[in-house]
């Protein structure tokens, strides 16, 4: 029963994973200590686009709800006004989804006929 339940969800979620979600999920995997600020900085560095903290929070929450990341409370720093961090990491399911997306893309890439001609 459990398996059946997730398999249906997987398909939907993969379909629903938006561009920003995908990026943030990837960043969670890349960044060492992934939490709101660090992800935001990494995003800006990697993409050159700026992003607000609330946007990141929203995305992280959505990913957590979909079961692709999980979180725990980390340490507090003075810089944060004594507040703790919520540190995220990708779940195996998250990795699986990312891998599937990549595969899907590669499959699609390989189907482009002009690609070879143009680039020789």
């Amino acid at each position: 029963m459990y398996i059946c339940y997730t398999s249906i969800n997987e398909i939907q979620m993969i379909e629903n994973l938006g561009h920003l979600e995908e990026s943030v999920l990837l960043l969670v995997m890349i960044v060492e200590e992934a939490y709101g600020v660090s992800i935001g900085e990494a995003y800006e560095k990697k993409t050159g686009q700026s992003i607000s903290i609330p946007a990141i929070h929203t995305v992280l929450k959505r990913l957590e709800k979909k079961g692709m990341v999980r979180s725990r409370m980390g340490a507090a720093t003075a810089e944060r006004g004594g507040r703790r961090k919520r540190i995220f990491e990708a779940t195996p399911y998250g990795f699986k989804v990312i891998a599937e997306i990549r595969e899907n893309r590669l499959q699609l890439w390989s189907l482009i006929p002009k690609l070879d001609i143009q680039h020789g």
Binding site: Y35, G36, M73, A76, E79, G81, R83, R84, K85, R86
Partner: peptide
């Protein structure tokens, strides 16, 4: 914790 903490940290950076 996460919201205020992140905002403060972001502010300082």
């Amino acid at each position: 914790d996460e919201i205020q903490g992140d905002l403060h940290e972001a502010f300082h950076r």
